[in-house]
Nucleic acid binder design. Structure first.
Lengths: 384, 384
DNA sequence: ATGAAAGCGCTAACAT
DNA sequence: ATGTTAGCGCTTTCAT
């Protein structure tokens, strides 16, 4: 079949746009005629009629619940396929009071860890026949509103990967029997599930590495002060250094981007050489990568003059010009943990220990902390 | 409120895991008691009872359809908020035969263009109060199956950002009145909406730039042969060079990753110096970035010995060590186009010209092509 | 301005 | 093994 546009194309010559590429573009309006028959959606009743059975049998043919003769089943399935009918999951959820739907709160998928999180989550949901309904928060302030909108869809629960969960909202969600799973942030409720990278440990390990190199002036490149993960990483770093009698400078950044990293490099270079830190821990890789770029051409060399450790282990961190020592977040373990929780929520009787194979500890705040994995590269010279 | 875990923590000492970080991790099993009341979900009837009105009024209070006294409305809204009730969108869709749901087919969100696409789409949906239901395809082979699963949810239509849409499937979707929007791929049906980057134009422009520099030996770093976008970019490149009497080598790669780019660099370096291409067009930035890294330390300098142009304009392409000349895909225009189509689909009578401000042309294949934007950086020395 | 009642497309309990 | 029936929680006529 050759796809042929059968609509009318309206081309306004006054809308011609030259692009300097030797081509002329037009604003084009394509009008495709609507289908003659608005396709009144088929129902199980239509299938039943066509297969000469009762409507209930159609339901049974697809669900597998209740008795049905195999040959009847096959006939129904064949007829349904011809008509192009599948059970309406929305209608089914009316009756059963449950749809295999999960709400997911996410935010801008920039060049960072978030896209990876979402990707892993989506893959896991697909594997478990859970349908993710996405709620996009442009800023953290919108998260609570989205959490509220979530309830219109009567999903099994909500996975939060952005912003903070207000206590009252957590209670509201849990009290209607939904699960609440917070990824890399506190759940703010005793019954919420929360799993996160062990940020303080990462910070402490970073301190250990830098101290082991004999560094003496330390700097933490942090995110916003209200960023939970970043703050915890700094806490651990401060802690680890403190035990050795050191204390780092902490530079906060409004955004955790490469641009912020470049600015931090400028700030460092503005210091008198003898006051410049030589042991830097960045609470994410994006800042660290920008920082490294900002130091290029300044005469400062890594790791001779300065060591730097990042967090996230982005793909770019292993690229030739960076070779950034970093922490890999235990993404698989965390996603596994979330799915374990969802299953346990669905079948409380069959509750089994979480299958996450990674090491983890339970914090006093109810958060399950999974250890990050240190990936040593060329921006440090130490061994653990 | 201090979050206090009230469940029992079971700690198996035999599961102790040392991590070499001075901490000991345990596999921890946390048992939180189930809520005493399984929270039988509230319904509009509960709200009605509490507000001393009929159930129908509750519906009117929220929908705004039908007459209702303002004070009654306020009372109902207040009561509903106390109870924590919101209209069940699934139930509503039963009656109205329509839910503000959109299916989105996506795939692995790796370090590439896809995360950006999804991010923009999600943001647009949020702005238009459309709820995206995500379908994740680990490989292109799964796309058709997901397309079929899509129909269980009676969404308004489906946006495809991965894989190919079989003609029969397109027809099945469209025949039930759903829209079908393909992003950066053909819709394979006259009534499907398809919008894509003008890949051939990009390829041709790349040729123009490289020819303008006086390059004489050309190479295209391509993706798999069945990649629609990559192939069209190569087509344009071959075309543009052909008009000047040149012909490039074309190296196909199974994956369009930095790793593939590194391998291509090795392949180039294995050629005798006088046979090496000096004008390279990569059909995506990831390959180009890997290629640049692969050339480091080889003695070949960019853009003296060799120019390279990528496609996608990834964030990393503007980083100091790369400064890659590239094409920015007209993402905003494409997403806008998709949303225009969805609106037109919903209200055919109010059909209005697409609001995408970018230049675009209508291909003979029914695809709306939006011009990419050339971003000149340091891996080329030419001017357009 | 409000209420009563029908019914969306299904599943599940019950009857045959 | 199959059919009949009663809803699920809403929106929407239609009455009052």
């Amino acid at each position: 079949m050759t796809p042929v546009i059968q609509g009318k194309v309206r081309r306004n010559d006054e809308d011609a746009i030259g692009c300097g590429d030797g081509n002329t573009y037009y604003r084009v309006v394509l009008t495709v005629p609507a289908r003659t028959s608005p396709a009144s959606a088929a129902t199980s009743r239509d299938v039943a009629k066509a297969a000469n059975v009762s409507q209930a049998l159609v339901s049974r043919a697809f669900s597998g619940n209740g008795r049905i003769a195999p040959e009847t089943r096959d006939r129904i399935l064949k007829v349904a396929a011809e008509i192009g009918w599948r059970p309406n999951a929305l209608a089914a959820s009316m009756v059963t009071g449950d749809a295999p739907l999960v709400s997911v709160i996410t935010t801008r998928l920039s060049f960072d860890w978030r896209a990876q999180v979402l990707s892993h989550l989506l893959k896991a949901f697909e594997a478990w026949h859970l349908q993710p309904l996405l709620f996009y928060a442009e800023s953290d302030r919108e998260v609570d509103r989205l959490l509220a909108e979530t309830i219109s869809w009567r999903t099994r629960g909500v996975v939060v990967t952005a912003g903070v969960v207000p206590e009252a909202r957590a209670e509201a969600i849990l009290s209607r029997g939904q699960f609440l799973a917070a990824l890399n942030r506190p759940g703010n409720h005793p019954e919420a599930f929360s799993i996160a990278t062990d940020n303080p440990i990462g910070g402490r390990q970073a301190a250990t590495v830098l101290l082991g190199e004999g560094r003496g002036r330390f700097l933490a490149l942090a995110g916003p002060e209200d960023s939970w993960a970043s703050s915890r990483r700094v806490d651990g770093f401060v802690d680890g250094l403190g035990q050795a009698g050191h204390q780092p400078m902490v530079w906060h950044n409004a955004t955790m981007t490469t641009e912020a990293g470049l600015a931090c490099a400028d700030r460092l270079l503005a210091l008198p050489p003898n006051e410049r830190p030589d042991g830097v821990f960045s609470t994410n890789d994006a800042i660290a990568l920008g920082f490294i770029d900002g130091l290029r051409g300044s005469g400062m060399t890594i790791p001779q003059d300065l060591s730097i450790i990042g967090f996230d282990n982005l793909p770019a961190s292993s690229w030739t010009p960076y070779q950034l020592t970093s922490f890999e977040q235990p993404l698989d373990a965390m996603v596994l943990g979330v799915l374990d929780h969802i299953h346990a929520h669905q079948q409380p009787e069959a509750a089994q220990p979480p299958s996450a194979p990674e090491a983890h500890r339970l914090g006093a705040d109810g958060v399950i902390y999974c250890a990050p994995r240190l990936v040593l590269r060329q921006t440090t010279r130490g061994q653990l």
